[in-house]
Write a protein that binds this DNA or RNA. Sequence first.
DNA 1: CAGACGTGGGA
DNA 2: TTCCCAAGTCT
Length: 310
Amino acid sequence: MPPPPSAPASPGGEDTSELVSAVLRWYAAHARDLPWRHPGPPDEIAWPVLVSEVMLQQTPVARVEPAWRAWLERWPSPAALAADGPGEAVRAWGRLGYPRRALRLHAAAVAVVERHGGRVPSDQAELRALPGVGAYTAAAVGAFAFGQRVAVVDTNVRRVLARAVQGRAEPAPALTAAETALAASVLPQAPPGDPRLPARWSVAVMELGALVCTARAPRCGACPVADLCAWQRAGAPPDDGPARRGQAWHGTDRQVRGRLMALLREAPGPLDDAALRAAWDDDGQRERCLASLVADGLVVPSGGGWSLPL
DNA sequence: CAGACGTGGGA
DNA sequence: TTCCCAAGTCT
């Protein structure tokens, strides 16, 4: 196969065309068969792709897959979801975590119906204007559903580029402008006859980061670009950045909110304060968390008790 | 911009 | 068992 057209030199000046073609070859042989990757007309796959991308925000593929199937069977279009209440979306979200995403996805469906005639927009600015759709998700939908040549920069891509190109063990704690520029410079041009190559490169790097160039224990022995990886060539130096602080969990508001939401999701009707006590016995913290859930729109007062929004 | 925001599985 | 972390977004 002919090498893809080389990207312009990256900011550092290196030619990344070899990296691109090696990753694409590896992807062709090792890609997982994930349902939201199945090809189709943009109008048919944009909604499934959007749903997958929102579900995949901070949630592993294995847990997303069954939820994604159930979600799309029930709500095969933005209009179908918009016709139901947000509480139904929150309940169907189940235990995926970060339930505000369910609320935002519902709000996005409503916005798609109201502003775009029920079709997921392809324009980056219009995508970004949807609730819960940030830089990553807008780029992912543009690339994976519409085949656009847009740089998709997620944590996997950042890690692969940090290692392979920058020679660092880990990317910076937060996305930097330099990383965005690097990702854009590595993004290949579409050769004649293969307009989706840039998008395919993006899934491919993500897949490499997810399966081989992992955060914990990278499988460099199985990596298709180990021989041209700047980090490997430098002797795989350890991360020099500040240690990341882990997320506290026990006793935090997040834990309490999670327990409250679990009770409300599983309840057939409204729950009163006494019932909610089962979630957390510290009255002050429980009430504060309930108030924050109400502020978020995840919970509403209902007949003297509390329930998911209608 | 640092910090909040769920959940469960693997090392 | 404890710690780490998985395709981020919003404030």
